[in-house]
Design a protein around this nucleic acid. Structure first.
Lengths: 223, 223
DNA sequence: CAGTAGGGTGGCACTAACTGCCAGTTATCG
DNA sequence: CGATAACTGGCAGTTAGTGCCACCCTACTG
């Protein structure tokens, strides 16, 4: 019998392993079903077993994938936020953030399931306003996103990832996009406001600029 | 038998009731014992019953006070952060943040148990780096602190609490002081670095200034 | 001062969340 | 194909967390 070190990432410490694509897909599938159940019947009313059954996996696997039933929604939330962080990473120096993001958007129009996932994520962000456990999951996702943004900021400002200025800048920017996401989620889902992509991008860009003005991460404001 | 609506704030939704001072003290007592146990023997190795026993209350009461054993540390963390937010609230317009904070500090020197609590909080923040559940509690506390700061920023900038600029500013500032707290906790407890109060204040003020430069919340940098 | 209403506690039974273990299955790769 | 590692399901067990009710205080009120 060889060393059986089944990871059980439920207790995921900081040495965040890259995670096999296979596993990532399985987690994402569970995440979608969990979000749907949470949305349509509430968090308290859906059990881990319910999620497992809906996703077509064993309850044991759900607990292997996630450390709590609420954290099941993390992959869905993460996908949405990480895409934005990745876009910031690709953003060329010296160009306008708005224009870059708008160009990105028209370059690769989202697939239907992408849109469906984004909507689910939006729902979970709105749900986070009333469900502490979901809010906790959302904050953990933003926290991870912040860590990703640290490397982006460091490269952009040509500083190290341990530099306090870099870390503060990444944290401020992440917090800013979190708030915009929350505002928009609630306005859209609770107050039924409509937003164009351009409006959303404008608010995101403005928030990033305002929160990183001193470091010059986002450059000067647009006219 | 009259309507018995025992609240059980374990499921604390957004309508955050002000919480009776009696209850707040009891929660704080449990919080101190929980933090001590988590620190000396680890989170996984301390059960809710352990915490209850150490604090001299019934396990039932622990679950009445808190929605999870990890969130037991929230009052301790909150006390430390809220004091900083309250200081920002008292900060007069047009004066230097550093000088104001230093003056505050020498005005009311902390009591011994205050210092003990601050140390415990520092430990929990450091522990949050390796314990996801504690990190989650820490992020929830910062989230609540952010909500408090929104009202402070709104008054200072003479805008409403729903203004996007205000919310972004509060979020960025809160995230900045969170990062400084984390950096200092880890440097002090893991790397055994020493900090003077002036150094800590300087880093906090710098972070607040950098993250709120565009709104002018914190005024211009010191020479 | 007795009665009583309301906030708060403890105890107990119970459910749901979560873990350890192992045997079985499926992907991966030489 | 064979071997090895990654992954899954099932089941027994533990711990976390809830609902319910009797009880205890404190404070108010007639």
């Amino acid at each position: 019998m060889t060393e059986r070190t089944t990871p059980d990432m439920s207790s995921d410490g900081p040495p965040t392993a890259p995670l096999s694509p296979r596993l990532a897909r399985a987690r994402m599938a569970v995440s979608r079903h969990a979000a749907a159940l949470f949305w349509e019947r509430g968090v308290a009313a859906t059990s881990g077993d319910d999620i497992a059954e809906a996703a077509g996996v064993s309850p044991r696997s759900v607990w292997r994938y996630f450390r709590s039933k609420e954290s099941c929604v993390e992959p869905l939330l993460a996908a949405s936020v990480y895409r934005f962080m990745a876009a910031l990473d690709r953003w060329p120096l010296g160009s306008s953030l708005e224009e870059f993001l708008l160009a990105e958007l028209s370059d690769d129009p989202s697939s239907p399931e992408q849109i469906e996932d984004d909507l689910s994520a939006l729902r979970m962000i709105a749900l986070a306003a009333t469900e502490p456990a979901i809010r906790s999951a959302w904050l953990m996702v933003c926290d991870e996103a912040e860590r990703q943004l640290v490397t982006v900021v460091a490269r952009r400002l040509d500083l190290t990832t341990t530099n306090p200025q870099v870390r503060v800048c990444a944290a401020a920017a992440t917090a800013a996009v979190r708030v915009v996401n929350e505002d928009i989620s609630i306005a859209a889902l609770r107050d039924h406001q409509q937003f164009t992509a351009a409006e959303v991008i404008h608010r995101l860009a403005d928030a990033v600029r305002a929160s990183t003005a001193e470091t010059g991460f986002a450059g000067p404001a647009r006219s």
